[in-house]
Design a protein around this nucleic acid. Sequence first.
DNA 1: TACAAAGTAATAGTATTACTATCAATATAA
DNA 2: TTATATTGATAGTAATACTATTACTTTGTA
Lengths: 244, 244
Amino acid sequence: MTLPLLITAKFFAIVWHMQPKMNDKLFLKDPEQSDIGKNIFRKSIKLMKEIGFESFTFKKLADEIKSTEATIYRYFENKHRLLNYVVSWYWHWLDYQVIFQTNNLTHPEEKLKRVINILTWQIDGELADDQEIDLEDMHQIIIRDASKVFLTKHVAEDNTDQFFKPYKSLCERISNIMKEYNPDYPYTKSLSSTMVESAHFQDFFMENLPALTDFEDNGKLTDIRDYLTSLVFSALNQHKNQLN
Amino acid sequence: MTLPLLITAKFFAIVWHMQPKMNDKLFLKDPEQSDIGKNIFRKSIKLMKEIGFESFTFKKLADEIKSTEATIYRYFENKHRLLNYVVSWYWHWLDYQVIFQTNNLTHPEEKLKRVINILTWQIDGELADDQEIDLEDMHQIIIRDASKVFLTKHVAEDNTDQFFKPYKSLCERISNIMKEYNPDYPYTKSLSSTMVESAHFQDFFMENLPALTDFEDNGKLTDIRDYLTSLVFSALNQHKNQLN
DNA sequence: TACAAAGTAATAGTATTACTATCAATATAA
DNA sequence: TTATATTGATAGTAATACTATTACTTTGTA
């Protein structure tokens, strides 16, 4: 019944990874429960990143994992559900990063800065080193395709099935830190979702449509970080009681 | 050779509408040059809004306009190009709205507020009353589907073909007003694109995923406006020379 | 160890989508 | 009037998005 005295970040991350509570309506058969399922998840990230979500098919994925379409259809209803699974996994993972990395911080200002760093992909090396999933590929998919999971005609049904819960959870967590920083700011939820979406959009623009940003694609994301920091804190400080 | 003394906003809008300089790589045959082409444009907006872009097919559109798939394929290479055409039309239109509505304003602050009103769909009644295009449907499509035109694997080629020029033009215009307001703010381009994207995202969230906003879907967009105003001006004022 | 039950994979299908090609009818322009 | 372009109708192909069937393999229990 006794726990080991030294629980390292890595150990904890692995434990977490072994138990990501995924919404079971996202799949027909739990991909975590079989080797072929895990392979579907891993290789779909690789393939989606390579050819883009629109060109991605279960046939191509089946060839990649040396199996058949029918097998994949036993795990996921269609490719949109699979994307939703991948994206949900990511939001779970990111939410965990925020919990873990802001855990021992006292000031909400520090916490928010840490959140910005996480959103702009400055993640702890140990935690980011997943044995199974290529997190770099994952991040690329998220930037380009994550919003497609809710930008659909059937968003209401998907929402009823709680598909966006991890995303909401992350935004709520950020929102709460904002409230901690400034209880008088009236738009914490909107500012949180704006922050998350902007982190991705600005990254995409920087790499693909640089006219829409002020940043250079120099491999470092320092500028996006500075921009988000400036944006968030100027908004939060504006409504802050000047006496504090 | 003399122009009529009284040029009304409506007249001018119609003139503009008759000559939107669309990128001719977006289509195979100019849809403005025939009745059937205009019908493709009009009805595709209606149909996309009704069934969503993913379910939208040229077959369904052909049935709607009482023509055949082959005819539509003579105008547009595929449905993604058609969406790009629709979205480009919208950015052109919005850019024009910004030009027209900020034209006679002196203070950049006023101009920015007007821009926010336009982005949150508070448009001049006369101008918004297009005989041919249902602008309400158009706005709905834009909110849900506009970002899909660039969130693809082939964004680089599309950018080379200048498909995103009207969007860039709008953002640059907003960026220039921001510079006018505060020449010292270093992120005008990013703030412009954030503003435009946020206006749409917050609207979508308000209607579909309210946990991600602080607004109620009461049919009015006043709150999104207040939020964007607060966000933009707090950012711009932060870097502003305190002596001004 | 035996044998049913359950799960898994491979094969083979169907319906729809995303196009392309052909050709005749019609409208238009030189 | 004759050439040219536009449309409509028909047909066809390749790929996609699935579903159904059947045969094989593992597992749980007597």
